[in-house]
Write a protein that binds this DNA or RNA. Structure first.
Lengths: 247, 247
DNA sequence: AGAAAACCTTGACCGAGATCAAGTGGACGC
DNA sequence: GCGTCCACTTGATCTCGGTCAAGGTTTTCT
């Protein structure tokens, strides 16, 4: 899923601009070229960034906040099909209309590039095209991993899977390497979690309570989560030992 | 889904070799270069083509038959995450190990390219890299469309969705354009359908019987299906009028 | 041909998760 | 401070699809 930070930032620490999702290696010329066609846009929590079917005249990446990709049936059933975290890429070079809604789950800042010049740049810069292919392959793997979650896991396993992804992402951001407890704030409402997991919000609530009761997680308030033992959480998720997810 | 024929073959009718999935426009030089590194492999129905985690030293495309991508949990629960039809591409340039099992659902012939030379070719031929990006984006869209099926549709809708995809693919192959009945043979066992839809085989069987009783489909034997009214079938699938699926 | 193995169907029953409904608790505006 | 709203929790009940079991049909093997 786009839950992964799709990019290796390790050799890119002092990148002068914010679209590191695209510039894996901070090549100076590419950065200058990108710099010239970029602009920022802000969105408030709850706002729809792109409607399914809309013309998309930009591509870009999330700078801060969390956006979600959702599909909706006529009768209102909705399924979240991806989460966009900071540095994740949005848009499909070569396509003109969006295949699903993109919504701001929290307040979001995006760094956008006008599509046409970006595509031109891609044509003349194989490195960017290659990077984009790698990112898209990662997203495809993550989407397929999520198909297993949606199709075959129980409600409890689904919740554990989601928490485990978020926990491990946060761990890699802050307490990387250490095997101590992981602490984070849930960036999603119960309803958003339900839409991601193919459940109802009541079931999400019940299963979170159950995991709390069994001390797989600790809660302070409704959103602040402590995971005392990530291994235990991953067992609950039914994942094989090392996780499988590309986080 | 890889259910789509991912490539526009329309201007490629007399393509002299079989990897049209890669050569969207039959550029002569590319074809010659690809020709030099290609070879064929055959697999029998039921055989595993690639094991999850295996080193993959080739990429390629399906020439005939149907292959499936599946993920399996330790306890044996399995979820099919993609169907590979003729012309669909297999492999991830730039990656060395396979993320899921690839199995021959029917007898399969694949046209393979050794990975290293193929990657070299990609580097020197932006056109191929671009094509591959487009194909991967299509697969990503299809995978996400399938997430809606897995997460939010009822058993009956799931079956109708699958039949509808197969029917429309077959229709575009044979009776294209015409609005008459569509006839095809199911290329999957009930169990494979169940694995694809996140159901049990009993439920698949029951729902197919129900669709037959309601005359949404007609059956001769267990596999030969007639769809008298594709619009009706798509209604049953819960798809919006024009389908959504990129077939 | 006959036996065995796949593959598929149908029935009876059960349970995980949905649905319906009420209530809690914190944030915010007045 | 108090009411209102929103996100969340919890309970009671129902239902869809899973599970277990038996039987039928087609294909394959000997």
């Amino acid at each position: 899923m786009t839950l992964n930070t799709l990019v290796d930032h390790s050799n890119c620490e002092d990148c002068p601009i914010r679209h590191r999702a695209v510039c894996a290696r901070c090549d100076a010329d590419e950065l200058v070229a990108l710099e010239e066609i970029k602009y920022y846009r802000s969105f408030e929590a709850g706002q729809t960034i792109i409607w399914s079917g809309d013309q998309m005249n930009f591509v870009g990446s999330v700078v801060s906040g969390i956006a979600s990709l959702t599909q909706t049936m006529e009768d209102g059933r909705t399924q979240m099909v991806g989460l966009l975290l900071p540095s994740d890429f949005v848009g499909r070079p070569g396509r003109d209309s969006a295949p699903y809604d993109v919504q701001a789950t929290t307040d979001v800042v995006m760094c956008c590039f006008r599509k046409k010049p970006f595509e031109d740049l891609m044509g003349s810069t194989p490195h960017i095209a290659h990077r984009l292919l790698q990112m898209t392959l990662d997203e495809l793997d993550a989407a397929r991993e999520w198909m297993l979650v949606l199709g075959r896991k129980t409600a409890r396993e689904k919740i554990a899977s989601l928490l485990s992804i978020i926990a491990r992402r946060d761990a890699s951001a802050s307490q990387k390497g250490s095997s101590g407890p992981i602490v984070f704030d849930l960036p999603l409402t119960r309803e958003a979690m339900a839409d991601y997991l193919g459940l109802t919000l009541e079931t999400v609530s019940r299963q979170i309570s159950a995991l709390k009761k069994d001390e797989v997680i600790l809660l302070q308030g409704k959103r602040h989560v402590t995971v005392p033992d990530i291994g235990r959480l991953m067992e609950e998720a039914g994942d094989d030992s090392d996780g499988g997810f590309l986080v």
